[in-house]
Amino acid sequence: MPKVKKHRVGFAVDMTPLVDVTFLLLTFFMFTAKFKSESENEQKFQIKRPQASADTSKLPDKNLAVIKVAIDTVANDTAYYYAILNETDRQSVYQKMNFTSEMMLKSQVKANIDDLDKLILQTRVANYKTSFAIECDRRIRYKWIEDLMDVMRKRNATIFKFVTEKKSGGS
């Protein structure tokens, strides 16, 4: 006798654990996500930070001025960029620099070494507590840093930070 074939009418899977885990992960990623800052959004380059061994010290998020040395991917040209995180400090520094109204809106400005000299001086005048960070691409020639350090020494900004990245693999 042939068996009577049961007709399958689909089946239901209990999705509850799946949803639980998904939402758990979702909340985790949502809380850990850090969005790009305003100045990073404007820039046309990406900095490959130099690698160093693991360190727990992090960049301060107050009273910080970042000097970036990067290779512009479009123009293929190395340049200094200057960004002050604090809005009020930034405005007062820009005013002292006699920037155009268009420049005033930018959170990050491209600068040559002479501009940088003035910018660092004005930043220190505006807020003496400002700490400086140098974010430089690891492929850039040391000359750029040497010149920059000369300027910083001249302006008495002798304590600064190099922005690095945790070395992948190894100690």
């Binding site: 360190d55 727990t56 010290s57 992090k58 910083m152 002798t158 930070k161 190099f162 990245e165 945790k166």
Partner: peptide, 9 residues
């Protein structure tokens, strides 16, 4: 995440 190296010149 970026980390820093303190420098004093």
């Amino acid at each position: 995440t970026p980390q820093i190296m303190e420098m004093t010149i």
